[in-house]
């Protein structure tokens, strides 16, 4: 899409109410993504996008943050539930609410988009220092949807702090989030281990869950064993493991029925 539009223009064209915009409305948006299924967003959403969704939950905002989106618009006048606004404020995501429905919102943003010049990238890419070496463990509480995304958010913050390239940390964040959700959906508890070396980032997610009977089948897009409740939250559409596969340089899954599953993910740091 050659056109870009500012958050300010989007706010005006949608007559939107500002819920969170502490970081201002000057950022430019390059793509629009309209969906309520968060795994799809994590698989196909592009950075510098805005998310239009009817899913007014913290999970929607976390997904947008993982995918490096600039903002989220809740359609049909929906307002944030479960501290979605607090998360957006912490992560500097702009949160708007419009009375228009999704179709009308798409059409209005498109109409307001005028041909523009893509901003030149003024950011200097920071190289991770050679001596960076880090290993940290995180606890994942199963069945606790209210805290889903906490671990991947924390890992994303750490990678940002130590200067990992945003393209790589985005892939790590998305994969870790999907892995974290799998633990929450299926197991009572689990752990995530983050290991950073000068050449690669590794994330190992281990749970004491029911195990995966057929890993090959679980890797297929659309295959799911999630409950209706999980689907209602925009998850469990069978995109989790395929999405992890797409974002990792190396993926190994070991699983034993009634014992648990270990997902080993590796992301190479290219020089």
């Amino acid at each position: 899409m050659p056109n870009i539009i500012s958050l300010q223009t989007i706010k005006e064209t949608l007559n939107a109410q500002i819920i969170v915009a502490d970081s201002g409305l000057d950022d430019m948006i390059e793509h629009v993504y309209a969906s309520d299924l968060m795994s799809d967003l994590l698989a196909f959403g592009k950075p510098n996008s805005i998310l239009l969704t009817g899913l007014a939950t913290k999970q929607a905002v976390i997904s947008a943050h993982m995918a490096e989106f600039k903002g989220v618009v809740f359609v049909r006048g929906k307002l944030p539930k479960d501290n979605a606004d607090k998360y957006a404020r912490d992560k500097k995501i702009v949160l708007l609410s419009t009375q228009f429905d999704m179709y009308e919102s798409c059409v209005r943003i498109y109409a307001a988009m005028s041909p523009g010049v893509l901003p030149t990238s003024a950011t200097i890419e920071e190289q991770p220092p050679e001596h960076t070496l880090l290993s940290q463990d995180f606890h994942i509480q199963g069945r606790d949807f209210s805290n889903a995304g906490n671990v991947s958010t924390e890992i994303k913050e750490i990678l940002k702090k130590i200067g990992i390239d945003s393209q790589i940390s985005r892939r790590v964040a998305i994969s870790t989030y999907e892995g974290e959700l799998n633990v929450i959906m299926h197991a009572n508890q689990g752990t995530a281990r983050l290991i950073v070396s000068p050449t690669a980032i590794e994330v190992i997610i281990k749970d004491q869950g029911p195990g995966i009977p057929d890993i090959e089948m679980a890797m297929q897009e659309g295959f799911t064993t999630a409950s209706e409740e999980m689907r209602a939250m925009g998850f469990g559409s069978g995109m989790g493991l395929p999405n992890i596969n797409k974002n990792t340089d190396e993926l190994r899954i070991e699983s034993k029925i009634n014992d648990g599953t270990t997902v080993y993910m590796k992301f190479n740091i290219e020089k």
Binding site: S35, D36, G54, R76, D101, M102, Y103, C106, A232, G234
Partner: peptide
Amino acid sequence: KGVFISDMVSDVMTA
């Protein structure tokens, strides 16, 4: 007649 976009069945039922 018109278009509606949503991935949540509850929203489609409502609106």
